[in-house]
Amino acid sequence: MNSIISPLFWAVPLCIASATVCAEESNISVANGLVSGNIGLVSKYVYRGGVENDDIAVQGGLDYAHKSGVSVGYWGSTLDYDATDERRDHGFEHDFYLAYAQQINPDWSYKVQTTVYVYQNGGSIYGEGNEHRRTTAFDVLAELAYKDVSLDASVLLADASFGNAGDVYLSASYSHALPQDFILNASIGGSAYNSSRDDSLIQTTQDFAFNEARIGVSKVIADTGVTASFDYVIGGEDRLGQDFDNNAVLGLNYSF
């Protein structure tokens, strides 16, 4: 996550929601709600412009959506690093979330969601003196959608190994049906950084930075439940003003 953004599911704020959409036809009715899941591969895991896994990443999630609009779920991905041990070239990200969503009318809807990001082995990173930060992170997301356009804002609630409490990520996404059952997907995102909580572990030189833009296509492979996707990610900058690379991402996702 230091990511959603997951290249297969578009914006990290939208990664779980999109998995639910992909599974609409195969959701399982359970206790006044629906259970859906997904598992897939992406050629790279890119999140908010930064590469979380430069090799093939295995990703998957499970969601329970109650008829009241409350949902709970999990999403995870393999990583090519361990935040607390530079000697390790692999790790795992676990995202657990609680959300509430409602349809206002046929065109408008909204969602609020809180997510905890837990990394393999947990732990903290340490700086000068007694300064340390946990790798576990918490944020809250608000989303407003009009037809095929979604606007999102997420706020980091506590200092973490990759950001400061009060950092805000703003994103917009758009999807459009194309001929032959292809879907056009596009998104853009940037961060407003809270430099007032900087220390020896986190430094900030940019008040606001464009992080990434994405454009791609996806298509469900007939009678398989598998969605194939291609995204091109245009990298922006991080909180230090350092440039992110551009990346091409291929994905396969099976929904159930």
Rank of each mutant, 00 (worst) to 15 (best):
V51S: 10
P106T: 05
C22R: 12
V30K: 02
K44G: 01
K44C: 02
S71V: 02
K111P: 02
D85C: 03
D82G: 03
I125C: 06
L34Q: 11
W75H: 12
S68P: 02
A57L: 05
A57T: 07
G60H: 07
K111R: 14
I28H: 11
V35H: 09
L34N: 11
G60E: 08
Y117F: 13
V46T: 09
L98Q: 03
V51K: 08
Q113V: 01
V58I: 14
F9R: 13
H94N: 11
V46Y: 04
G60D: 07
Y126R: 12
P106L: 03
D107E: 06
Y47S: 14
G40K: 02
A19N: 13
V112I: 13
V42G: 06
G73L: 06
V118E: 14
V58D: 07
V70Y: 15
Y100V: 00
H94Q: 07
G122N: 09
Y100G: 00
V12H: 14
L8I: 14
G50I: 08
S77L: 03
A101E: 10
W10Q: 15
L62N: 09
V118C: 12
F9E: 15
D95V: 00
S124T: 11
G61E: 10
N32R: 07
E24Q: 13
A101Q: 11
H66S: 13
E86H: 09
T115I: 05
W75R: 04
L41K: 02
R88W: 03
A31C: 08
Y100E: 04
V116Q: 13
L14I: 06
S26T: 11
E128T: 07
Q113W: 04
L62F: 15
L79F: 13
E24C: 05
L98K: 05
G37I: 00
G127S: 08
G61W: 10
G76T: 06
Y110M: 03
Y45E: 13
H90M: 01
A65C: 09
A57H: 05
Y126A: 08
V12W: 14
V30W: 15
R48E: 13
Y100M: 01
A99L: 02
W108V: 00
Y126I: 03
V30A: 08
T20H: 13
F96C: 01
L41R: 03
E93T: 00
D82L: 12
S43T: 10
V21K: 13
N32Q: 10
A19H: 11
G76F: 10
I125F: 12
G49L: 06
W75G: 05
F96A: 00
E128S: 08
P106E: 12
L8D: 15
S124R: 14
Y126L: 07
D89P: 01
Y45G: 05
V35T: 02
D63H: 14
G91K: 03
L62W: 15
N121F: 15
G40T: 01
D63C: 06
F96N: 04
F92Y: 13
G91T: 01
D63Q: 11
W10M: 15
A11W: 14
A57C: 07
S43F: 06
D80M: 03
G40C: 01
D85E: 04
I56L: 12
A99Y: 11
N121C: 06
F9D: 14
G69N: 08
I39T: 04
A83R: 11
V42Y: 05
F92S: 00
G40Q: 02
A83Q: 10
